[in-house]
Amino acid sequence: MALMTSQREAKTGPVVAPAYASPPRAELKGLRISFPLPDMSMLEVISGISMSVAEGEFVAVVGPSGSGKSTILRALCGLLKPSGGEVTVDGKPVSGPPPGVGFMFQKDALLPWRTVAGNIRIGAELGSVPADQHEARIASLIKLLRLEGFENAWPRQLSGGMRQRVSLGRLLAYQPSLMLMDEPFGALDYQTKIAMGRELLSVWEAERRSIIFVTHDIEEAVTLADRVVVFSARPARIIADYKVDIPRPRHLRAMRSDPVFTQLTEAIWSDLAMPS
């Protein structure tokens, strides 16, 4: 598998190349994470993962359920202490939550006592946006995420997909330079998923943040990302790391008939189907 990976990485670069020359935005070196089980033994979830995310790079992570994808994101934003290896963000070892790292949880974690606008405002208040621009920022995000008319709705009045969009709004309002996204579009229907993917790409292309995007949807991973990292079942290792050689700007529907796209999704399918 390692051979195949390097072959793919050797392929000539995409049109919009990430700035590989600059130091990695985030890096994992030999990361190991174990959790204590009730019977005092240790459950090894991550067994030696090394990967890095370049400045402005969009990396998707796919892998079986329970393989430790969420756990890796938690380690990257300092919510969880690894039992071995190194985690660095912007060259500094992570001990607590590093500045400029935004985490969109798998569960939306909206505050039920805050309206849609109020929940998005939390991102703005805690981020680097100057206070006098909060309102404009929130209004533009509400428009971007198609939440107009729901500014003053309570979270309990929203559908699962709308809640996820509010949670994305809060992340974008925070303006992180590294976005950790844990199945952000998991609760969306196909059309909204495509639309949100398009919006995410336009935000990303405009502002060039780094993204680690965890998903179960292989096609989504390939359509959005520069690289797709495939995790094995627990304990997680990286079984493949594909570069997606599809030029940008991408047309999210048309690219599905691109031979590179079909080849890549096929390859990832067979990686995940492999017993490991």
Binding site: R74, C77, G78, L79, G96, P97, P99, V101, G102, F103, F105, K107, A109, L111, I122, G123, L126, G127, Y174
Partner: peptide, 13 residues
């Protein structure tokens, strides 16, 4: 909800 607290923590609140 612990996630709400973790979220606040991740944004260095």
């Amino acid at each position: 909800d612990q996630d709400q607290l973790d979220l606040m923590k991740s944004m260095r609140a």
